[in-house]
């Protein structure tokens, strides 16, 4: 199969997955919560009016549609720009830049989610506070083998990059290793926050917190492994001048990120399994 056709298929998959399929799933979850856990019976879940929630839903839907349209336009544009003589003449940065834009609606939801939790805390008038009398230890939430795999992959990346630069610290090496190191520091920070930080949702039940912590730490470990792997793949592609393969890897990168983050939330965090009783007016 010619590389360009394969790239089109992968890019179509990126557009569909990140700007149609996953946003649709997230909107279904939001609608399910609004229909089954309305503000009249679950007032603590809605620190602001239902109108505000519905407005955010509409903005999220609208943004994804715009980005979907941009994706289709890019696809058509790329097809028109490529010519018979040089079918591999694609801008390598397009899937990367477009992928970053595709994550914007999700980031907007995350930021609004934090604001929602802050408002919930402000409205929480309970004077009783609970805490577990067990320490939260890392390996109670994640397999040691997964953490070791992430560490090994990171060390492998550094060793591999050094080997490819013939043990010389080049600028490119520093950028690659530096950016992966920063990413891993971020993942460690998120892990520590989930283990020892304050609860974002003041009403969250302990069982839900345990599930969420397990999920967050495992996701961080998988993404860390994948980021290291992606950098190794990038280096190989650059070394052997596989330009069209690089553009496909860039597109797949965002899809795998989405599968490990949004995809895992949808698969493992079923709305029906969450304890919503804590948001009832009479709950303590």
């Amino acid at each position: 199969m010619p590389n360009s056709v394969l790239f089109y298929l992968i890019f179509i998959s990126q557009i569909w997955l990140l700007s149609y399929f996953y946003p649709r799933k997230i909107l279904e979850r939001i609608r399910f919560v609004i229909q089954n856990y309305p503000p009249q019976q679950y007032p603590k879940l809605y620190p602001q009016s239902l109108d505000k929630v519905e407005r955010v839903q509409k903005i999220y839907k609208f943004l994804n549609y715009i980005i979907l349209a941009i994706g289709i336009w890019l696809l058509v544009g790329l097809g028109m720009l490529s010519n018979a003589d040089n079918q591999d003449n694609f801008n390598e940065g397009i899937p990367l830049m477009y992928g970053m834009v595709q994550f914007i609606p999700m980031m907007m939801l995350e930021v609004l989610g934090y604001k929602q939790f802050k408002l919930m805390k402000q409205k929480d008038t309970r004077t009783n506070r609970k805490a577990e009398l067990q320490p939260r230890r890392l390996f109670a939430y994640v397999s040691p083998y997964l953490i070791i795999s992430a560490v090994v992959m990171y060390i492998f990346l550094i060793a591999f990059e050094l080997y490819m630069t013939q043990y010389t610290i080049t600028f490119d090496f520093m950028v690659k290793v530096g950016s992966v190191s920063l990413a891993n520091l971020l993942f460690i920070g998120i892990t520590l926050f989930n283990l020892f930080g304050k609860k974002l949702d003041p009403y969250q039940a302990t069982e839900e917190r345990i599930k969420q912590t397990k999920f967050a730490i495992r996701s961080m470990a998988f993404i860390s492994i994948f980021v290291s792997f992606f950098m190794v793949a990038q280096t190989l592609v650059n070394t052997y001048e596989l330009g069209t393969v690089e553009i496909m890897i860039n597109s797949l990168y965002f899809q795998v990120l989405a599968i490990f983050s949004i995809g895992r939330i949808i698969k493992n965090f079923k709305i029906e399994d969450i304890d919503f009783d804590v948001y009832k007016a009479e709950s303590n």
Binding site: R129, K130, L133, Q134, P135, L195, F196, G197, K199
Partner: peptide, 25 residues
């Protein structure tokens, strides 16, 4: 909790930071 044997000798307890964050004190 100790008297009621809900926690037993040599059981680990949460760190000061963890307990303070959980109780928000």
């Amino acid at each position: 909790a100790v008297i009621n044997e809900q926690i037993k000798p040599n059981d680990a307890l949460p760190s000061i930071r963890q307990l303070a964050n959980d109780l928000e004190i």
